[in-house]
């Protein structure tokens, strides 16, 4: 058994430290060590986007990041998107627009969509489709996901006016 490394991070605004083997991915650390199972595994090779999280504000697939690389980093997962008991406008839009069916890809899409709207509050349909092309959804055909992101963008802009 390889020796474990001590890692200190900030996850969803809270200091979190954990021990992990050098070979363990951030995805494994989040799910199996820290217990944040909202981040999903669909392929473990960076192609499906189900494990999308934010690492120092940049979206990454957690399966392609090692746990030890999280040292000193700020991580946002799906568990950190809602503000307390209030859903984020993107989460609400996904529900109102029926933008999920099975829901397994949803955490990754919501984290990715938040990263998009954080930097581009008024994206075109093409910009949304381009940005979300890292995330696979097999249920919805994307139509309602794209609309939900459009609606969330509208709501968020109304709220800032």
């Amino acid at each position: 058994m390889p020796a474990k490394t001590y890692v200190q991070t900030n996850i969803n605004g809270e200091h979190v430290d954990f021990l992990c083997e050098p070979r363990q991915s951030l995805l494994e650390c989040l799910r199996d060590i820290i217990g944040l199972t909202g981040t999903k595994e669909g392929c473990n090779d960076g192609n499906c986007g189900a494990c999308t999280v934010m690492l120092d504000g940049i979206i990454v697939t957690a399966c392609l990041v090692l746990g030890v690389e999280a040292e000193g980093k700020e991580i946002t997962t799906i568990e950190g998107i809602a503000q307390g008991s209030t859903l984020h406008p993107i989460q609400l839009a996904f529900l109102e627009d029926a933008a999920l069916q099975c829901g397994i890809c949803t955490p990754g899409f919501i984290v990715a969509a938040k990263a998009l709207l954080d930097q581009n509050p008024d994206p075109t349909e093409h910009e949304i489709r381009f940005w979300l092309a890292n995330n696979l959804c097999r249920c919805t055909g994307y139509d309602k996901i794209v609309r939900a992101v459009q609606h969330a963008a509208e709501k968020m802009q109304e709220a800032t006016v």
Partner: peptide, 19 residues
Amino acid sequence: PIRPDGADKVTGRALYGAD
């Protein structure tokens, strides 16, 4: 209407088999 399992599925709380 909004689906009854909606909140769990947009917050990462819903438990799938691998969880």
